Amino acid sequence: MNRNPYFDYIDERLHVLARRIETRGKLNMLDLHLHSENFYMHFFNLLYGYQLENLNSKMQNVEAIDLIDHTNKVIIQVSATCTKQKIESALTKQILNNYKNYAFKFISISKDASNIRKNTFKNPFSLTFMPSSDVFDITSLLNDILSKKAEVIKVIYKFIKDELGGEVDVVRLDSNLASVINTLSKEKWDETNEGESINSFEIERKITHNELKDSKEIIDEYCVFYKKVDEKYSEFDTLGVNKSSSVLRSIRKEYRNLKNSGTPDFVFQSVVEKVKEKILESPNFERIPIDELELCVDILVVDAFIRCKIFENPQNYNYATS
């Protein structure tokens, strides 16, 4: 069974955050820890349906409590230190006497907690606390994520991508584009080869003509890769394998199916999503990190836009053959 590529990205980003916490000096540690509290607040709200808020944003340096959900009666401590002493110290803080009906949970943001979960703890205020399930680390979180449906994992992926980002390795772009192109080119289509030549044109005029507003940014950003894609197509076509027309036909077919489905920007983004889904569902897909896959798909769709394969050309539009 293939692992969900969105899950692989989540796995990698959570471990990157843990490594940052491990290696960051004391000067930056407080800022990073505060960021981690806010990150895990939103993360747990999304993953477990909590309504957590950051108590430290209202009351500075509250002992034992970083995050609190009054609706579900949950309090959470977030820490880069994961020891029995740390957790027990939190459980014995006098402030917890005000939250006797609450459940206590502990998030280890950088350390493995598998051995800690085997311990027993003093719990003088009788909060609900089961170490086996209430002490979280990256591994336990990933197991919980993996048990979710694919659409839920995708939502979590988008949140983590927005929060933690991740730079794309441009050096690997050529091989990744080759993998995407190879996958699309193996799709079977009934349409005959239209024989359209590869063209360049005044991109801004076409954007304006098609009333693309939100999509303008992505087109402007990725049109610079036009020559790189053209070189890749040429390499394949020189070998006698006409993959370029197959890739462009597949993108064009998605556009034709979607062209009347909504606003121009909605159509553009829908084409991107459909092409990405086609790649992910293909048994020929040579797996790459999901953020790099998305970059490659964006570049390919923008390239198809440049080559007049999708969207309408302005009337009396002049463009030079590349």
Score class of each variant (00 low, 15 high):
Tyr102Asp: 10
Leu34Cys: 10
Thr238Glu: 14
Lys86Gln: 13
Leu96Gly: 03
Thr71Phe: 04
Gly195Asp: 08
Ile299Leu: 01
Asp291Asn: 12
Ser234Val: 14
Glu151Gly: 02
Lys274Asp: 14
Lys186Arg: 06
Gln77Val: 03
Trp189Gly: 06
Ala150Trp: 00
Phe268Cys: 00
Asn54Val: 09
Asp237Arg: 03
Phe121Asn: 01
Leu164Phe: 05
Ile207Leu: 06
Arg205Gly: 15
Glu163Ser: 15
Ile219Met: 01
Leu34Phe: 14
Leu295Thr: 06
Val224Met: 11
Phe285Asp: 09
Leu47Thr: 11
Asn260Lys: 07
Ser245Asn: 10
Ile156Cys: 00
Pro264His: 00
Ile76Asp: 04
Thr92His: 03
Lys232Thr: 11
Ser245Gln: 08
Leu46Glu: 11
Leu91Cys: 10
Ile10His: 06
Arg205Ile: 13
Ile288Ala: 12
Ser261Gln: 09
Glu292Lys: 11
Ser185Glu: 05
Arg256Glu: 08
Asn61His: 07
Leu212Thr: 01
Lys278Leu: 15
Ile107Glu: 00
Tyr319Asn: 13
Glu294Phe: 06
Asp134Pro: 05
Glu88Met: 03
Thr120Arg: 08
Phe159Met: 14
Met130Glu: 06
Pro5Leu: 02
Asn101Thr: 15
Thr23Ala: 11
Gly262Ala: 08
Lys73Arg: 15
Asp69Cys: 09
Ile288Ser: 12
Ile153Pro: 01
Arg19Gln: 10
Ile306Lys: 03
Tyr255Met: 02
Ile160His: 04
Leu164Val: 12
Ile95His: 05
Tyr233Glu: 09
Asn242Val: 08
Asn61Arg: 01
Glu63Gly: 06
Ser246Gly: 02
Phe285Ile: 13
Pro289Ser: 00
Ile10Thr: 06
Arg205Leu: 15
Lys278Glu: 15
Glu187Ala: 02
Ala18Thr: 05
Ile156Phe: 00
Lys84Val: 12
Glu88Thr: 13
Asp265Glu: 13
Tyr222Cys: 05
Gln315Pro: 06
Asp31Pro: 02
Ile145Pro: 01
Asn38Tyr: 07
His209Ser: 13
Glu187Lys: 09
